[in-house]
Design a protein around this nucleic acid. Structure first.
Lengths: 219, 219
DNA sequence: ATAACAATCCGGTAATCATTTGATTAAGAA
DNA sequence: TTCTTAATCAAATGATTACCGGATTGTTAT
């Protein structure tokens, strides 16, 4: 049955097209950015620290695998994920990477902030505390990303504005900062700044994409 | 902050190591085989229709990403998935591929058998019927794989033995066959044979790996 | 119209990857 | 010990990929 072989090869080849998209670091970074909402090529390139040409080339790959959609808006072209399942797959892949790759665990350890005992690291009790106003949750991503979605009870204070807006925050309650996800360093920077200024603070590893994937293990 | 760039690049690079593993058709096939239980390099090579050297090279990649473990057993070396999460990721990736790639949908359509109205395609009612003996579920994979795990109420009849063992099956009730998953053609072949011999039969697209991933959509 | 800008396309280069061939290790059997 | 089998390693190949520069397309502003 040589015929069956050919069919099978074809099937696996198709799935590998999806895998290929997730095999390049830059593309992963673009996907994580797109998890925060639709963005122009220019924005994506700037935020991923690559040239627009390279961003365009990588986005072309993403579109080839039908994982993103585009829409022209005047001079710009907006890219967005074609399906929430793409964001979910990104979360599943980086979760597996974190579980299996010691090297990645070490790197993440390096950038981790000291845990704050006042702040729980499980979602449910944190949300309960946020609802009651016992902690202040701040979203330090750019405002546009906050507007797309944000955690319940979260206040938008982009990392760039944080220093000027410290007066808005209470000193008696802990400040919990979050950003795009575990590979985005904005929340870490926010916590460092806040602690230096005398606030009680900790950061949430997860971003929106991680937050609403149901079956992900909570550390 | 050039430093932050370097750290971020390192993080995404690590995750991309996992993505790379899933970017080669042959490696995907090996992963699917390993989802059925531990196997020797020889078995894997034979079942994936590749040379042992090539299989060994691909397995080396898998081990490099810490997605598989090995154990020497006499002359042979057994490979097994290092974590159930690896199987889950395989299911998530091929599910996304099936959702997004029209080409894959077309290929899968070609090999699909005619649906049988007597047999439900949602899991719950199928299991209910199997429990009550209203359908006979057969596992047509090799016996070793059946022994590792199988669906509840499933009977083991490897595809090679099916023709000789037709007498074991009832003609009055539908026979539901399943195998390794949607890219394994054994269940399809079984259904073809059974129907030609006058049985009522249909096949289950999903295998064990797909079955016990909780959040997967049922078609 | 022309200019300015966003984005893609095209061609080339260096690096990486899949695959094959031949030699090598490691364990069990004669 | 030697022979056989299972599996890996090392080196070489052809194909693919990431990334750069230069030219091109499509859109808005002047």
């Amino acid at each position: 049955m040589k015929d069956a072989r050919k069919i099978k090869d074809l099937l696996y080849e198709q799935v590998a097209r999806i895998g290929k998209v997730f095999s390049s670091p830059k593309r992963l970074e673009l996907i994580e950015l797109l998890c925060q909402g639709e963005k122009t090529v220019e924005t994506l390139a700037r935020e991923a620290s690559i040239s627009m040409k390279l961003a365009s080339a990588h986005l072309r790959e993403l579109r080839g695998a039908h994982l993103v959609e585009t829409e022209r808006q005047g001079k710009n072209i907006l890219y967005r994920l074609a399906d929430k399942a793409v964001a979910d797959l990104w979360v599943h892949i980086h979760s597996l990477a974190e579980d299996r790759l010691i090297e990645l665990q070490i790197e993440l350890q390096k950038i981790a902030t000291q845990p704050n005992d006042l702040i729980p690291n499980d979602r449910e009790t944190l949300m309960k505390m946020a609802r009651r106003g016992e902690v202040v949750v701040i979203d330090v991503r750019p405002t546009e990303e906050y507007l797309v979605t944000h955690l319940p009870f979260a206040r938008s204070i982009p990392i760039d504005e944080l220093r000027q807006r410290l007066a808005e925050l209470p000193k008696d309650r802990p400040i919990v900062a979050y950003c795009r996800g575990p590979y985005c360093l904005m929340a870490v920077d926010a916590v460092k700044l806040l602690r230096k200024e005398g606030f009680k603070s900790a950061h949430l590893r997860d971003g929106i994409a991680e937050w609403d994937v149901p079956e992900i293990r909570q550390v």
